[in-house]
Structures are given as structure tokens and as C-alpha cells.
Amino acid sequence: MKLGIILETKEHEKAWNGFRLAIKSLELGNEVKIFLMGEGVEVEDIHDEKHNVSEKMHEYLDNGGVILACGTCIESRHREDTTECPISTMVDCVNMIDWADKTVTI
């Protein structure tokens, strides 16, 4: 299965669970892409003792996951492009949805 995840939150537990879902899906042999949108482009800045989002994000990437990030959302927050979250467009989001067998929004 090809799973597309649109992550729109910087709420630590929800973002953490989104990456847990993505990691488990990869472990089960699926392909996964995550598109960060809105507050989701800020997930790298989440620091919570109980829900280490940065750790889960890097575990996801280390296991072959792909992360795309909305360029408009990044620019509106005066953030810069990073290796983990390259600037993408809404066309990339639509292409991910077309690519995926299933898409979920968190």
C-alpha cells in the first residue's frame, strides 16, 4: 500500500502519533509520504519530554520515509528550507494524494 499523510498540526502528541503511524506502515512494507502543511511545518521545533517528535521524524526518515513541506506555509512563518523538509508546492501535495492508495490527515 502507498500511504499519504497530511500533517497539519504542531500539537506534540498528534504529530508524534502521525510519525508513529508512518514508521509502523514502513515496517509493514508500505511506502509512505508525509506532506507538512500549516502548523505542521513547525514539527522540527516541537520539544516535549513525553512525545519526542524530532526523534520520531528522524526515525521515519532513517527508515526510508519521505517528507514534503508546503512552501507557502514555510515562507509565511519566515522559515527556511531544510534537508528533512524540502519546500514543496500544492501540486506536490496533489501528486502525493494521486500517488497514494490511502491518504489521512492529522
Rank of each mutant, 00 (worst) to 15 (best):
E42Y: 09
I74N: 04
N30F: 10
V66T: 15
H58A: 11
N95A: 09
L7M: 07
I46C: 07
A100Y: 09
C73N: 01
H47F: 15
L21K: 02
G38A: 13
G71C: 12
K2R: 12
S54G: 06
K2C: 01
E49Y: 12
I87L: 03
T82D: 01
A69T: 04
D48I: 00
E11S: 07
K50F: 08
G4A: 10
M1L: 05
E39P: 03
G29M: 10
G65E: 05
E27D: 12
S88Y: 07
R79T: 05
D62W: 13
N17G: 07
E8N: 15
L36A: 14
S88M: 05
G4Q: 09
T9G: 04
N30A: 03
E27S: 13
V94L: 11
E84M: 10
E11I: 11
L7S: 03
C85K: 06
G71V: 13
A15T: 09
M37G: 00
E80Q: 10
G4M: 13
M90H: 02
E42T: 08
A15C: 09
E59Q: 13
L36Y: 08
L21A: 09
L68K: 12
D45W: 15
K10P: 00
K10L: 06
T103E: 03
L28F: 12
K56M: 14
S88N: 04
T82L: 02
E11L: 06
T89N: 08
V53T: 13
E27I: 02
S88P: 10
N63Q: 14
M96H: 01
M1F: 11
F35A: 00
V94H: 07
G64I: 10
I97K: 07
K33D: 07
H12I: 06
L68E: 04
E44Y: 13
I74P: 04
H78N: 15
E39D: 11
V94F: 02
D45S: 13
T83F: 13
T89A: 05
A15V: 11
L3C: 11
I34L: 15
V53F: 12
I74Q: 11
Y60G: 01
E55L: 12
S25V: 10
I97E: 06
A22Q: 02
S54T: 06
I87V: 15
G4Y: 14
Y60D: 01
V104P: 01
H51A: 08
K56V: 03
E44S: 10
N30W: 15
M37F: 14
V32F: 15
L3V: 14
I23H: 06
M1V: 00
H12V: 11
L7T: 00
I67E: 11
A69I: 07
V94P: 03
L28Y: 15
G64C: 12
E44C: 05
I74K: 07
E55F: 12
A100C: 04
E27Q: 15
E42P: 02
K33C: 04
I5Q: 09
S25F: 10
L21F: 13
N63A: 12
E11T: 04
V41K: 00
G38V: 04
D98F: 08
N95V: 12
V43I: 14
E11D: 06
T103K: 02
N17C: 06
I87M: 08
E75G: 04
F35C: 02
H58C: 05
N95G: 00
T89C: 02
E80G: 03
W99R: 00
E11R: 08
